[in-house]
C-alpha cells in the first residue's frame, strides 16, 4: 500500500529492478559494455570537475572585482557584506571615470586599436601571402627575419625607436604606433605574419593552378580566391591585434607619452596619484571626510578603474567569443 502512495519508494523500486536487470553477469559481452559505460561516465565526471573548477577559478577574481567595484566605500571593511553590496552605488564608477578621463581615453583607445588592427591586417596578410605562395630564395632568407622579429625582446629595440620618433616628430602621436603596424612591425606582427603564412600554405595548390589555367594573374588569384577564403585567419588576427593593442601598455607609454592618453597609460598615470588627481579635479572635497580617510578608498577607485578599462573588451568578447575559438580552429596555426 505504501509503495503505491510514496513516489520516492516507488521510484527506488523501479530503479532497483532496472539495475538488477542490467547487471546481467551471465552475459559477458553485455557486462563489458556496462563496465565501459561506467568508465566513460567516470572519466566525463572527472573532466567536468576539473574544467568547471578551473573555469570557476578564472572567473572568481573577476566577479570579486566587480562586486567590490559596486560597493559603497563605507562597506569596504564591513564583514557582513560578502558578495552583494547592501546598497548599490555608482559613486566609485563616477570617480574612476573622472580620474581616468575615461571617455576621452576610451575614444582614443578604440580609434587607435581599430586603425592599428586594419593596418596590421593589411601588412601582415600581404607579407604572409608572399611568404607562403610567392616564394623565391629571397623570401626564404627574409623569413628568418620574421622569426627574429618575434624573438627579439621589445626593450632591445625601444630606445632607438624612441629617439627615431623623437627626431621625426611623431613622439606623443598615435601615428607612431600606426606607422609601425602599417609596415608590419607593430605589436606581435611577426606572429600574425606567421599565422597568415601557415594559413595560405594550407590552401590547396590546385586552386591556384585552376585559376592560372583560366587566365588569372597572381594578383587576381590573391584578391579573388585567397583573401575570400582566408576569413578564418583574418578574424583571428583581427581579434588578437585588437585585444593586444587595447591591452598594450609598453609601447603606448613609451611612444604616446602623456599627450595622447589611452586607457592603459591613463591607468599608469593615476596608479600612484589618484588622490592628487581627484584633488585637481575638485572632487576630493566633495567626498565625505570619513570616506577619504579610509586607506582602502584609493585602491577601490583603482580597482573600479581597472574594471572600466577591461569592461568594453569583456563585453565585446561575449559577443564574438565563438569567432575567437572557431577562427583559431580554422586558421591552421596548426599546420
Amino acid at each position: 500500500m505504501t509503495t503505491k502512495t510514496n513516489p520516492i519508494a516507488n521510484f527506488m523500486k523501479k530503479e532497483y529492478s532496472r539495475i538488477k536487470k542490467s547487471l546481467d553477469f551471465s552475459n559477458p559481452v553485455k557486462n563489458k559494455v556496462k563496465v565501459s559505460k561506467v568508465q566513460t561516465f567516470g572519466a566525463n565526471l572527472i573532466r567536468m570537475i576539473v574544467l568547471y573548477g578551473l573555469a570557476f577559478m578564472i572567473v572568481y577574481p573577476l566577479i570579486q572585482q566587480i562586486s567590490v567595484a559596486l560597493r559603497q566605500t563605507s562597506e569596504i571593511n564591513d564583514p557582513s557584506v560578502i558578495w552583494l553590496p547592501k546598497k548599490f552605488s555608482l559613486d566609485n564608477i563616477k570617480l574612476a571615470i573622472a580620474s581616468l578621463d575615461y571617455w576621452n581615453a576610451l575614444k582614443n583607445t578604440v580609434v587607435l586599436s581599430t586603425v592599428t588592427t586594419i593596418a596590421q591586417l593589411i601588412s601582415c596578410s600581404l607579407a604572409g601571402y608572399a611568404f607562403a605562395r610567392l616564394r623565391s630564395r629571397f623570401t626564404n632568407i627574409l623569413f628568418i627575419f620574421v622569426i627574429l622579429t618575434i624573438v627579439v625582446p621589445s626593450s632591445t629595440l625601444s630606445l632607438p625607436q624612441f629617439i627615431y620618433f623623437q627626431k621625426i616628430g611623431l613622439l606623443g602621436k598615435a601615428y607612431s604606433i600606426v606607422l609601425m603596424s602599417l609596415f608590419g612591425q607593430g605589436i606581435k606582427s611577426g606572429i600574425f605574419i606567421y599565422i597568415f603564412r601557415q594559413f595560405f600554405r594550407g590552401i590547396p595548390m590546385e586552386l591556384d593552378e585552376a585559376a592560372q589555367v583560366d587566365g588569372a594573374g597572381p594578383l587576381q588569384i590573391f584578391l579573388k580566391i585567397m583573401l575570400p577564403s582566408a576569413r578564418g585567419a583574418i578574424v583571428t588576427v583581427g581579434l588578437f591585434a585588437f585585444v593586444w593593442q587595447w591591452n598594450d601598455g609598453y609601447y603606448s607609454s613609451l611612444f604616446l607619452r602623456d599627450t595622447t592618453k589611452v586607457l592603459t597609460t591613463a591607468m599608469y598615470s593615476i596608479q600612484h596619484g589618484v588622490h592628487g588627481h581627484l584633488q585637481s579635479l575638485g572632487l576630493w572635497e566633495l567626498i565625505g571626510g570619513d570616506v577619504t580617510k579610509n586607506p582602502l578608498f584609493l585602491s577601490m577607485i583603482l580597482n573600479t578603474a581597472a574594471i572600466l578599462i577591461m569592461a568594453p573588451l569583456l563585453i565585446m568578447y561575449f559577443f564574438v567569443q565563438k569567432l575567437f575559438v572557431e577562427g583559431v580552429e580554422r586558421t591552421g596555426i596548426v599546420g
Binding site: A130, F131, T139, S158, L182, F183, G184, I193, F222
Partner: peptide, 20 residues
C-alpha cells in the same frame, strides 16, 4: 608581386627593426 607584397614589410624591417 612577391617583392611588391613584401615591400612594406621590408621597409618596416629596415626602419623599425634592423636600424634600431
Amino acid at each position: 608581386l612577391g617583392i611588391v607584397f613584401l615591400l612594406p614589410w621590408i621597409i618596416g624591417l629596415l626602419m623599425f627593426f634592423i636600424y634600431p
